[in-house]
Design a protein around this nucleic acid. Sequence first.
DNA 1: ACTAAAAGTGAGTAATCACTTACAAAACTA
DNA 2: TAGTTTTGTAAGTGATTACTCACTTTTAGT
Lengths: 184, 184
Amino acid sequence: MTEKQELILETALKLFAERGFDTTPTSQIAKEAGVSEGLIFRHFTNKEGLMDAILAMSEERMGRHVKSIVALPEPLAKIHATIELPVKLFSEEREFWKLQFSLKWQKKYRGQSYRPSGYYLELVEVLTDAFRQLGYAEPQKEVLLLVMLLDGLSNQLMQQPSEAFIAQTLSFLKSKYQQSQLKS
Amino acid sequence: MTEKQELILETALKLFAERGFDTTPTSQIAKEAGVSEGLIFRHFTNKEGLMDAILAMSEERMGRHVKSIVALPEPLAKIHATIELPVKLFSEEREFWKLQFSLKWQKKYRGQSYRPSGYYLELVEVLTDAFRQLGYAEPQKEVLLLVMLLDGLSNQLMQQPSEAFIAQTLSFLKSKYQQSQLKS
DNA sequence: ACTAAAAGTGAGTAATCACTTACAAAACTA
DNA sequence: TAGTTTTGTAAGTGATTACTCACTTTTAGT
């Protein structure tokens, strides 16, 4: 991976997140990255090849996050860390994850990027077990509910990313998952 | 609104939902609608004009749904009806609402279609009141949580729209909002 | 230092796209 | 029925786009 290759990837990521995949011309990517347009195609063959390279990074980064959650010893800590995941994602690499979420609705990439990855399935399993250990009656459904919640939270974060709002929301969510809460 | 005008709108809606706004050429809309391409521009001036017409329908339809929820007498009934809203939306007019959700991530239309409409604000107010009446300690945050949940539910519905899954998920969600539940 | 492969350039090019225009058929109005 | 507006069409057109190609420069192995 040469220096210019990374520059192209970074610039493409930024522009795809800002303006969308279809509406970002390769000419603009080249211009803002300060390279010739031809170089994009030398390294990534296609415009889609560019996107594929970005998607590959996604898998890897998400894998690291999941690993650190799975490694936690306490079941409740795993759940709380999962709740914090979207906030962590967005605070660290906003554009990157914004792009990820927008892809969910684009037919071309729905199968590719949102075919549940191995990491996602592992997280689901670990969370199911965590809920079971905490005595929840229907651990699988609880995981589904948590996943939906975090999906919605991600949407909210895109629209209202103020620190105060985030802190408030996080602590409220966590208060819903406490040892003292009802496990219906 | 002539017959061909409606035909164009329906076809555009279908194609925009399937393939996305930017990747659907006006030529294809014309072809599938069985009209000349020029007619699209005669009636809707722009490709954006087409989208605006579709978006206008959205406001109106959502308004009807919100009205029927607001009209319910019992606070708990209001909450349960809100939980059912995404399922109702998707079962009735799948493509239409799919398009709506995908628009959230497109810069061009984020302000336009997702500037919280009057109907949305009304629903939030009514729900806040419903939670308060039910004795919840932090009604405003409960509404936020419910909104996030339904956002996530909508995502799930797009990926797994099986009847069994929907029924199961709905009843589980409703069970979380019962008179007998904790109101922390 | 010699050389071959890899990195990089920039001027094309064919295809596609949103939109226009000149014109014809229908529908309405008197 | 004559005249006018509205609805509809078909054949463009200029701009844009993803991608290519012939070429030069840099890098790396021996």
